[in-house]
Design a protein around this nucleic acid. Structure first.
Lengths: 227, 227
DNA sequence: CTAATAGTGTCTTTGAGACAGTATACT
DNA sequence: AGTATACTGTCTCAAAGACACTATTAG
């Protein structure tokens, strides 16, 4: 019976400079030495797949609260890794804005890069990681519609405008601030007011919210045909 | 570096007797000899994961056109298989009603069973297959809302009433025939009229349709609060 | 004061859900 | 005729999109 190597690879997304960005590492060793790749690594002998994903995430980022991690898909085409028959379980992580990442032991460097650079083909990744990244981005875009997941990109307390900025960055187009405000504040369980206000943006102070307990947005926020 | 066994397991769903049913096999050899399990098997040395899933599907069913196969999730908890560290990639298949299945080489028998028997705990499966089945059922239920996937359960040509029967069987409740008819026929690209009619159900003959080219239903068909 | 952002209200359109009513078959 | 199913139309209500207007800060 054939034996396989099993790895986890991570699509770690965040919002920086109002753009959706992905965490990539520079490969320190062959194959693809010097190329960019998704962070990842081998699953341990007695390690659960999800535990391996959390471990890799912790190695690359100063991980804290508010992280969302979910399984994306599994890729196992013969020949996808020249070192041997390898199946990789890809995970999607959404994290709040944070300081610069630290390179793990197998990486020469780690950096945030705008996803549009990959979508436009200006940057590419090692192995089949371009495909994995594309699947992760699509999953994130789709999930914002019907889940309160956008809050995973936010600090613990945030304003409606910040939340709207997340949607705009992920979907790549503007939303009407007034309709968005009505939509998210009237959706029971999505947001919890904290009572505090924030005055960061130079206008009238905004109410601060925490994530609510809701886990499915019904009706969803549609990305299709907004201004 | 730890080596793993990699398998594929299949959640094969169909509609029989107006109920959602799943294909299960009786295990011929240990472990769990004599128990019911999802069909599946080891991935070959030079075999793609999806190819392995198609191969297993063909071994159990007389598979034809109109099958939908998609990756569900991957399960790799240590200890989930007593034979060794095994990661399984689960796939969801939706097939039209067909004759009785044939047992594969590793199975003593193969049979369709109503999913409600598993959901109610009247039947259970070997390994962690109950969990995999639950995930597959939930995926199927969710996908009917926003994709034209229900047609995968239908023969090549079908009536609106047959299609409605699919939704009712999968979701487990009735839908208003008139609103359903309006919804699916007005949704451009969902259904293609064939010009032919069918007179199977004892009333006015119904228009026959083929699957259209649409791949995302917008707006979706909601399962939430229908009669 | 102006500029900027936060938040409310109102109008129009779309579509879901409820259900009356018409069409065309079988017995 | 009566019954069953197919299909169309109409009413009401909820929510999206567009956008006028008010509120509260900084400078």
């Amino acid at each position: 019976m054939q034996e396989f190597f099993v790895t986890v690879d991570l699509v770690v997304l965040t919002i920086r400079d109002d753009r959706l960005q992905v965490l990539v590492v520079e490969r320190k060793y062959p194959p693809y030495q010097g190329d960019w790749a998704l962070p990842g690594g081998y699953v341990g002998a007695e390690e659960d797949l999800e535990a391996a994903a959390y471990r890799e995430l912790a190695e690359e980022t100063a991980i804290g609260a508010g992280v969302h991690l979910e399984q994306l898909a599994t890729y196992g085409e013969p020949g996808r890794d020249p070192r041997g028959r390898t199946v990789t379980v890809a995970w999607l992580a959404l994290v709040p804005e944070m300081r610069d990442p630290s390179a793990g032991t197998d990486a020469a460097a780690a950096a945030w890069r705008p996803v549009e650079d990959f979508e436009a083909g200006r940057l590419t990744l090692a192995f089949d990681h371009d495909r994995i990244l594309a699947d992760g981005i699509e999953r994130a875009r789709a999930k914002l519609e019907y889940s309160p997941l956008a809050a995973a990109f936010c600090p613990p307390e945030f304003t409606v405008a910040q939340l709207r900025g997340i949607y705009e960055a992920v979907w790549g187009h503007r939303l009407d601030p007034r309709n968005f405000h009505r939509k998210v504040t009237r959706s029971a369980g999505f947001l919890e007011p904290t009572g505090r206000t924030s005055t960061v943006d130079g206008g009238r102070p905004a109410q601060l919210y925490r994530r609510g307990s809701l886990d499915t947005l019904n009706p969803p926020i549609t990305r299709a045909t907004q201004a």
